[in-house]
Amino acid sequence: MKVAITSEGNSPESKVDQRFGRCSYFVIYDTETKSTEFIPNPNRNAREGAGPASVQLIAAKNISKVVSGEFGVKIKPILDSLKIQMISVKDEKSITEIIQLIENNK
């Protein structure tokens, strides 16, 4: 299973980005191979439509869960129809902490 986490920076110590469409980096974590991949978000400075464009990026990677702070009104219906689970984390957690939680979950 692959999980996408929005990140403010490109290190495991970075915090979860509260924005989804305009986050700085996407972290793709694979629970089987335990690999993490940092992808800079090309839609970061997009004028509009950053959310749907980011969903496309995520969906192309076969993600089943997305961890972010907030999901916008345009994103929720798309992710819902793609059956991608949304997880909203409001308090400041680092990428390592999130991965730790996912690992303990199994």
Partner: peptide, 19 residues
């Protein structure tokens, strides 16, 4: 954390993040 249930047929018994 907050999480949704994308599969409406299954009931949620544990947290999607920490279990």
């Amino acid at each position: 954390c907050y999480f949704n249930n994308p599969d409406k047929e299954e009931t949620v018994v544990k947290c999607a993040l920490c279990g």
